[in-house]
Every structure is written in structure tokens, then in C-alpha cells.
Design a protein around this nucleic acid. Structure first.
Lengths: 257, 257
DNA sequence: CCTTTCAGTTAGTTA
DNA sequence: TAACTAAGTGAAAGG
């Protein structure tokens, strides 16, 4: 991670460093005064102020104000970035693309920090499925929990917060309550299911089974589960994801018939 | 713009600088190795790699990989940021919020650049040529839509949200409703105009024309337009901007309000 | 405070 | 390549 860093560079220094970095498609960070104009799908102007300008290694350009999640101005990847020194002391950076045809112009004033370098990032990013999605998947493919399971109706919350559950019937006709956890189920989760079942048994006389569906049981949850005569079924977010994907496919083909 | 910059800081140096910056709610830039985990509405993990971590002055946290417009992980403004040095050499940054309850953990490895400071940005941001402004332009220069068109009155919403429209009379005295879209008009836009006209025709007996004024028609909108006997007129944001600009020259005071 | 709608949405997927 | 859809959407506007 060799970084080239300049503090309070002159215009010519900054221009030289920027041009080199743009050519080599390095990451560029510039903290300093600038103003920005944009023209394309819409048009905008941004007066002078201190911001962070970031040019990424794929050519995307981001102008960030000191507050706010979103960049105030930007340009997506694969745009053409150019550095110009127009008048003495006027360093301008342009980023343009076509389709749609648009460009942003960033005029710099005093720059406090200019840093460039090539970051190496091969780390894997994995976004996991949500509890709600796991529930969806189990409703579509109840065999993820147990063969012969038939979901009865949608969630009845009982004012329980964070309780993702499914009502179902097993192949013997027993009522089944499935509590879904995306993360390893804790003793608290088991107790939550237990309280739910207790409430339910005051209004339903038929036998009720309680199943915790989660990727695994946290330490200490298994003994509690046994003593309460509840059950655990391993259901992984990944397996649910696969079901959701396949369902998407079938749904799509249904509409295309 | 006093910036505090450290190159290749030690863990303890980095921790000290980070803690101070977090307390004073300064902007923080950290370029270096990290891995990230997120848990909340969904959950995600991101393995080791070199990234830019940015903490803004409102507490928003952004983790940017060297490519891509969007941050790979983030936390919106007003979240609680904490710095921890857990094991020797393990610098961890956590950013959490509730509603929804979620948090990200950023564990740092080698840090190449750490910069903090308070940026001062009072520059005004103005986005031009919105749909509203296109409406302004057409009210000023109705010939953008049709020669002889005379606007009658300002918008009557009819509970329609997002319906930017103009009432007018054509040179034959027909009532004309113009629906303005800054982006290519979709079938939905056409249907919206149609529903509007249907409602209008229940209370007005004279002939009414419906015109979609947009830079272009999205695929599929033209046949629908034809079958409903509606019309399309190409009106570009650029043309509207030109009108607004020319008006700006003549009536500068209006825009300075 | 909650819901709805917009965005220079961006990004991914599929026909 | 173009149209469609989802997003940890975020942000603004209206009730």
C-alpha cells in the first residue's frame, strides 16, 4: 500500500501528482477547497467550500461534503477524468461520460491534503439473508424444516417484537410453531419460543410442537431446549437464499408462459 | 482547514488520534487494511483488504473499496462511533444505531494514512432543471409545447402526487392538460394523465386534449398514447434551462430571491 | 412520527 | 443492449 501524500501542495505540484495518478488509475484523495458544477440529466452548482474529493481506481468520482451519507456530486465508474491548469492557480478536474452525456467540473482552491496510491482489495464480501427472507423461504419450501410440514397462516405477532415465526401442521396433524433465527439461537430465543407456546396453549388444546429454526444453537441453548421439550432444526441463511432464488425463477417463468 | 495527518501510525497512535477525532466529531479518513462485519436489517462480512474508511462530522461512516460508486459498508448519520483497542494490535471501530438496531465493526490492520480535521463548508448547492423548473419554463414560454398555447392557471393537484401539470387553451379554444416529465415518459405517466383527464371530463364538458411533455417516450408508451388519443411533445430540460437562463438575464432579481 | 414518493437514484438480472 | 427490479436503498415531503 504505497501512498504518495502531499500536504498543502502548490497548484503545479498538485496538478503533476493528479495527472500521474489519473494516468495510472490510482486512488486519489484530495481534501481542500473546491467548487463543483454538474451538467447532464440535470444540472447543479456547488459554491466554494472544503470537501473531500475521491477518484477511485475504476474512474468513479465522488465529492463528499463534511456531512451527509451521500456524495453531493459524483460520476459513476468508467468516466473520462482529465486534469487541467487553466489560469495560473486554477486547477480544474473534469469527469465526463456519455450515455447519459454528462460531466462534472471540480475547480480546486487551496488543497490541504492530496494522497494517491493503489489499494489492493481482494477481500470477499458476503451479504447474508435476513430473518424475514428466511421466513419467506420456509413458507415456500417447508421441507427446509421438516418433510410433510404444511404452513397454516401468516405470523401472529402476539405483540412479540422480533419474533419471526410460522404456524404449521406436521404430517401427524400436530400444531407446529417455528421460530426462525438468522443468527445462532441463544437461550433468550428459546425462552421466547417457550413463552409464546405457553400463551398459545392457553387458547389451543391440541398438541403443539415448538421448533427453533436457526443456523445453529448457541452454547447453553441445547440443554434448555431439551428441558423444555422443544426442538432444533438447522436452517442456514444460504439454503434459504437458494430457495428464494429458485422461486424467483419459477415465478418469472409463470408470468412468461 | 487544519488537518492532522499521520503516515503508517502505530496502533496506539492511531487509536489516540481516532479517539480524539471521534470526541471532537472531526472528519476522519483512514486508508489501510481492514475487515468489516455488519449486522442489522441484514448482515454482511467483508474480508481483509485495503480500503478507505471515512467518518464524517455528523457521525456517518463510509467504507469504500478501491472501486465502485457505493460504499461497501456504511452507517448513516447520528450513529454512535466508538474506538476500541481490544488485543494488542487490534484496533476496532464500531458504529451503531438503533431504529433500526444495527451496527458495523471495522477491524483495522496496517494503516497507511490517517487524517483528521474539521472541514468548513457553507457553499450553497443548487440543483437545476427539475420538473418544477420545466413547468416554470413552459409557463413562461408555452411555445416550448405548442404555438398559440395559453396557460390558464396553476396546478390543480386532484390528489395526484408527482403530477406536474399545466392547464392551458390551444388556439382553437380547446382545453389542454400538459403533463411534464423531466425523464423519458413511461406508460405509468401516460396512464396518470389518462386518469386525470377522465376525472376532469366528469366535471368539464368542453373538449380536452392531453399532452405529455417530456424529453422522450419510453418504449411502450407510444402505443398506449395512441390508443388513448393522447399526444406527445418533445420538451428537453436543456431547452427549458435556456428559457430560464434568458429570463434570468432579463429578470435577474427574480432568481436572486 | 409515520407513510409515501422521489432520486442526476445505482446496480444487478434477464430477455 | 435495453428493460425490469431490488436496495441494509437514503432523503424529502406530506399527513
Amino acid at each position: 500500500m504505497p501512498l504518495l501524500v502531499k500536504l498543502n501542495p502548490t497548484v503545479s505540484d498538485a496538478a503533476a501528482l493528479l495527472e500521474k495518478a489519473v494516468r495510472s488509475r490510482s486512488l486519489i484523495l484530495a481534501v481542500g477547497e473546491c467548487r463543483v458544477s454538474y451538467d447532464g440529466r440535470a444540472s447543479s452548482t456547488l459554491g466554494w467550500g472544503e470537501r473531500l474529493v475521491m477518484i477511485k481506481q475504476d474512474g468513479s468520482v465522488l465529492v463528499h461534503r463534511p456531512v451527509g451519507y451521500e456524495p453531493v456530486n459524483w460520476q459513476p465508474a468508467r468516466c473520462l477524468v482529465r486534469v487541467k491548469v487553466e489560469d495560473p492557480k486554477a486547477l480544474v478536474l473534469s469527469a465526463s461520460r456519455q450515455e447519459p452525456r454528462e460531466m462534472i467540473l471540480i475547480e480546486f482552491g487551496e488543497i490541504g491534503l492530496l494522497a494517491t496510491g493503489n489499494l489492493h482489495d481482494s477481500g470477499e464480501f458476503a451479504l447474508h439473508v435476513t430473518e424475514e427472507q428466511m421466513k419467506e423461504a420456509i413458507l415456500v419450501a417447508p421441507e427446509l424444516v421438516e418433510e410433510g410440514l404444511k404452513p397454516l397462516e401468516a405470523e401472529k405477532s402476539l405483540d412479540e417484537v422480533g419474533f419471526t415465526d410460522i404456524y404449521a401442521e406436521d404430517h401427524l396433524g400436530n400444531l407446529v410453531v417455528v421460530e426462525i433465527k438468522r443468527n445462532p439461537a441463544t437461550k433468550a430465543a428459546v425462552m421466547q419460543l417457550q413463552r409464546y407456546l405457553e400463551t398459545l396453549r392457553t387458547v389451543v388444546s391440541r398438541p403443539i410442537r415448538g421448533i427453533v429454526a436457526a443456523p445453529q444453537l448457541r452454547r447453553g441453548a441445547q440443554p434448555l431446549l431439551n428441558s423444555l421439550k422443544l426442538e432444533f432444526v438447522k436452517v442456514s441463511p444460504e439454503g434459504c437464499l437458494a430457495v428464494l432464488k429458485s422461486r424467483k425463477d419459477t415465478k418469472l417463468s409463470y408470468f412468461l408462459v
